[in-house]
Design a protein around this nucleic acid. Sequence first.
DNA 1: CAGGTGACACAAG
DNA 2: TCTTGTGCCACCT
Length: 108
Amino acid sequence: MDEQLHELVRETVRAIPAGRVATYGDVADLSRAPSPRLVGQVLNQDGHDLPWHRVLRANGTCAPHIAEEQLQRLRAEGVVDDGGKVDLRRYRWEEAVKERPEEPPGLW
DNA sequence: CAGGTGACACAAG
DNA sequence: TCTTGTGCCACCT
């Protein structure tokens, strides 16, 4: 089994500080997951005890079925959402960003 | 062994 | 900027 990977993903998600968010891709990269989809897959099974609400898509949105609770929980942690979207530039987990090798300099 | 699925990401219109 | 469509890659049936 990929119990190792599962635990690794859970560790990564659990490592996300309150009031901060990370994308599935970032979690996948930090947890050495072969694909971001695995992160969602793992969360769907073993994410009950994890702050899964701190994990969202690359564009700052989240899945439809969980979006409401996602934003609600995020709001409770101090993360403001804009029409169902969160400003990743503001709330993106620093550690996750650190792993990103390239960022457009003129984006800011 | 083969087919279907998904809590994603990226490209194109 | 938002909406679709396609690709991905591992997991499940």
